[in-house]
């Protein structure tokens, strides 16, 4: 297990602190989360300017419902409660993760206002929009909403039955999940669906045959857990792919690997082959590229790849709490 050069990845993640390209402007909070979490799982968070980062994160907070939450990045000057500069569920989830990693106790988080705002993002069919008044609704934001409720330990804003029904409607004929009903099953969407069920305490619905769930939840019909596990296991071709008939890609070790963890089936990953794949995707600068043989790393794949390597159980990389995606020792 010496082909993966953890020292190189430490260097890479320390460098990510320094500069980022313009494209990350609208997803800055999430990118910051990946930088901080990447440093954390490599045990490099001690010299981060913690207080400064925490203060910056709190300055992105909008505290009045229905707009409450954290913004990705301040676009406009206005600091007050306006619909102009949106807080979004994705950046609220990312901000809460950053705060947790850095040891903040959420004492300044406008918890109730965020929960009220989040409840306004849930549509009639149980799907969730990206932010109050937003037009994008799919499984990604179902996940963000569940993760926020879990982190704030407050489920008052969510109708779990409604959300569960939506997740069930996204299950594909392959056993996997799609981001919206009718679409192709996909590793990332499957991770979001399973994490949401897990965080709601309902992942047992997938195993109804074994009588894990009580009668009050009988109305929800999911396909058999076995079929889903088999679909996930079938994604491996050295590394993991996200859909049937596609090539392996470093980021799906995260989505598929963590999904298998949540289903108690991570032992079926062929660790040696997967390890081989990540060794091929590691670049000389540290970090990972999307596919083997590309010479340059990209930031998202480096972070998700590193976490995926952690799933394999490798010295020097902390394991994640699968449904939230940060160091498991934080819980």
């Amino acid at each position: 297990m010496e082909k993966l050069n953890i020292q190189k990845h430490i260097e890479y993640f320390r460098r990510t602190r320094e500069s980022l390209p313009q494209e990350v402007h609208s997803s800055y909070m999430t990118v910051l989360f990946f930088i901080i979490s990447g440093n954390d799982i490599l045990s490099q968070k001690d010299d981060l300017p913690k207080d400064e980062i925490i203060d910056w994160v709190y300055r992105q907070q909008v505290t009045q419902a229905p707009y409450a939450g954290f913004r990705a990045n301040p676009s406009a000057e206005i600091l007050t409660q306006t619909p102009w500069d949106y807080a979004s569920l994705a950046s609220t989830y990312s901000a809460l993760c950053i705060l947790k990693i850095l040891g903040d106790d959420y004492s300044r988080v406008a918890k109730n206002q965020i929960i009220i705002s989040l409840s306004q993002c849930i549509l009639e069919d149980g799907s969730v929009v990206s932010h109050y008044g937003g037009i994008e609704n799919d499984m990604r934001f179902v996940y963000c909403a569940c993760a926020i409720c879990y982190l704030l330990d407050n489920w008052n804003g969510i109708d779990k039955d409604k959300i569960t029904r939506f997740i069930a409607s996204c299950q594909s004929y392959e056993g996997s999940f799609a981001i919206s009903p009718g679409l192709e099953g996909h590793g990332g969407a499957t991770y979001c669906a399973l994490s949401s069920l897990y965080l709601m305490g309902r992942i047992g619905l997938l195993d109804k045959e074994n009588g894990v769930i009580d009668d009050s939840l009988c109305e929800f019909s999911f396909d058999r857990k076995d079929k889903l596990i088999e679909w996930l296991v079938m994604r491996q071709g050295l590394g993991f792919s996200g859909r049937s008939g596609k090539a392996p890609d470093t980021c799906y070790g995260y989505w598929v690997g963590l999904s298998l963890c949540m289903l108690g089936a991570s032992e079926y990953v062929n660790r040696l082959e997967n390890y081989e794949f990540y060794s091929e995707c590691q670049t000389v600068y540290g970090g990972f590229s999307k596919y083997p043989g590309l010479k340059r790393p990209d930031f998202t794949h480096s972070y998700l790849g590193l976490c995926a390597v952690g799933v394999l159980g490798i010295d020097g990389v902390k394991k994640l709490f699968a449904p939230i995606g940060i160091d498991e020792n934080l819980f």
Partner: peptide, 20 residues
């Protein structure tokens, strides 16, 4: 023109193109 209000966080600085 209004510059960004908040002092930047000291890590993860975005390299904006001047025009942007």
């Amino acid at each position: 023109p209004k510059p960004e209000y908040s002092q930047k966080v000291k890590i993860g600085k975005i390299n904006y193109l001047p025009q942007f």
